[in-house]
Lab assay of single mutants.
Amino acid sequence: MTFKLIINGKTLKGETTTEAVDAATAEKVFKQYANDNGLDGEWTYDDATKTFTITE
């Protein structure tokens, strides 16, 4: 399955995708991506669209 991450950061904005077997796996990938890029914010997830959002 394809999951999307929408980034609404103070300095970084955009989106990225990952292929994962489930939402929990995708969340780990996206949280590592956010950590690697210095993002810290509030996370939301929409199961209907398989989309995570981080807002700083």
Rank of each mutant, 00 (worst) to 15 (best):
Y33E: 02
N37R: 15
W43L: 06
K28F: 10
G41D: 02
I6K: 06
A23Y: 12
E56F: 11
L12A: 12
I7E: 02
E56M: 14
E15I: 10
G41V: 03
K28E: 12
A26K: 00
T55Y: 08
T51W: 03
A24W: 10
N8M: 13
A24V: 11
Y45R: 02
Y33G: 02
V21K: 09
D46N: 11
K4C: 07
Y33Q: 03
D40T: 15
G9Q: 06
F3S: 01
F3C: 01
I6D: 03
D46T: 05
G14R: 06
T53S: 06
T16K: 11
N8H: 11
M1S: 13
V29K: 11
I6V: 09
D46V: 05
F30K: 00
D22V: 03
G38D: 09
Q32H: 08
K31Y: 06
T49M: 07
F3H: 03
A26R: 00
E19S: 10
T25Y: 09
E27W: 14
A48T: 11
T17A: 08
T11D: 13
T51E: 05
F3K: 00
L39R: 02
D22A: 03
V21H: 15
Y45L: 02
T2H: 10
K13C: 10
T17S: 11
L39G: 02
N37M: 15
G38H: 12
D22Q: 03
I54V: 12
T25V: 08
T55E: 07
E19T: 13
L12R: 09
K28Y: 09
K31L: 09
T49S: 13
K10M: 11
T44K: 09
N8C: 08
L5D: 00
K50D: 03
K10H: 11
G9T: 15
A48C: 08
T53C: 06
G9M: 15
G14K: 11
L39N: 03
Q32R: 10
A48R: 12
K31P: 00
D22C: 04
A26L: 01
K31V: 07
T18P: 01
T44V: 09
I7L: 08
E42P: 04
Y33K: 03
A24H: 09
V21F: 12
T18V: 14
T2P: 05
G14S: 14
T18Y: 11
W43C: 03
G9E: 03
A26Y: 00
L39S: 03
E42N: 10
I7Y: 13
D46F: 04
T25C: 07
T16F: 13
E42L: 13
L5A: 02
K28V: 11
W43D: 00
G41Y: 04
N35R: 15
Y45I: 02
D36H: 06
G38N: 12
I7P: 01
Y45K: 01
A34Q: 03
D46K: 03
D40S: 14
K31T: 05
T11V: 10
T25R: 06
D47H: 10
G9L: 15
N35Y: 15
K10V: 13
E56V: 15
G14A: 11
G9D: 04
D36Q: 11
V29H: 15
K10G: 09
A26D: 00
E42H: 15
D36R: 09
D36L: 11
A20R: 03
Q32E: 09
K50M: 12
K50R: 15
Y45W: 04
T51M: 04
T16G: 04
D46E: 07
K13L: 08
D46R: 03
K4I: 13
E42A: 09
E56C: 07
G9N: 06
A23M: 12
E42M: 13
A26H: 00
T25K: 05
T16Y: 15
Q32W: 05
V21E: 10
D36N: 09
W43H: 01
L5F: 08
K4L: 08
G41W: 09
K50T: 04
W43M: 08
L39D: 01
I6A: 04
D47C: 05
T16R: 15
K10E: 08
